[in-house]
């Protein structure tokens, strides 16, 4: 465990140095991400100048949903960024090096790069989450906070499962291009509370592509709107998805054919 932390740290430093070497591009990405965060935040605040509630949620509550979406999304980006290069890692043979070195190739692949810029977006998001909590004192207690944190972690775990599955497919077929981007675009459906969608869409987003479980459930649990049954369902779902994706990954490694040099 300690070893993996040290390896992660070296990868992080190397990634940071890489980003420094193309600082102009990095600054552009960072600014873009901050602009997106800022404008959507303004948008939500502006909407509530003209309405009192969104499906029964107040401004602070809606903002909490939005921030939770960002939290799960950014943390997944920060830690599993490497998957975005899965195809390149396989095609250029980097995976071969991962496989012959004594560290988990899955870890090497997922954390192959660390996007430090996401630290800069994560910090304001965390600060805003704290501020939002203070605007919702009637909901704030040990249990609500506990379940919020637990479900955010659970959401990150589901994101991990999806990333692992995508990596496995990349290793296996060597041709699935950009699958992870489709996940990322679908993920934006979780930007607003899941309650806005029609029931059919809600079911799809809960059971088929569990974006609601990742982004909306934590906030719902905090606001006391999620039954214990659904909380247990979330944990069951993430465990099932993780084991499924790990199975897929092991199978993929067995079928791995390496690329000819």
């Amino acid at each position: 465990m300690k070893k993996y932390f040290r390896v992660w740290w070296r990868i992080a430093v190397a990634s940071l140095l890489t980003q420094f070497s193309t600082w102009l591009s990095s600054v552009g990405y960072l600014l873009g991400k901050l602009i997106r965060l800022f404008f959507f935040f303004i948008f939500i605040v502006a909407i509530f100048q003209h309405t009192k509630s969104l499906k029964g949620y107040s401004l602070a509550q809606t903002v909490l949903f939005f921030l939770t979406f960002n939290l799960v999304d950014i943390v997944a980006q920060l830690f599993f960024r490497g998957i975005y290069a899965a195809r390149r890692i396989v095609m250029e043979g980097d995976l071969d090096f991962f496989l012959v070195q004594p560290a988990s190739p899955l870890f090497r692949m997922a954390c192959g790069t660390v996007d430090f810029l996401d630290f800069f977006t994560l910090i304001p998001v965390l600060a805003l989450v704290g501020m939002t909590f203070s605007h919702l004192p009637e909901y704030l207690n040990f249990f609500s906070l506990f379940f919020y944190v637990l479900l955010v972690l659970n959401g990150i775990l589901i994101a991990l499962a999806i990333h692992v599955a995508v990596a496995a497919m990349a290793v296996w077929t060597q041709e699935l291009e950009n699958t992870i981007w489709i996940y990322r675009d679908l993920m934006t459906l979780g930007r607003f509370p899941i309650d806005i969608y029609s029931s059919a869409v809600r079911w799809v987003l809960t059971l088929a592509i569990p974006i609601a479980v990742m982004t909306s459930f934590p906030a719902q649990a905090f606001l006391g709107k999620l039954s214990l049954g659904w909380i247990l369902f979330s944990f069951g779902l993430s465990i099932a998805m993780i084991s499924l994706s790990l199975g897929l990954w092991n199978k993929a490694l067995k079928e791995y054919t390496s690329v000819s040099s």
Partner: peptide, 16 residues
């Protein structure tokens, strides 16, 4: 050679 980041930023700003 590093216009990818600025382009990303520009596109978001433009869309908003």
């Amino acid at each position: 050679s590093e216009s990818a980041g600025p382009l990303f930023c520009f596109e978001l700003l433009l869309q908003f």
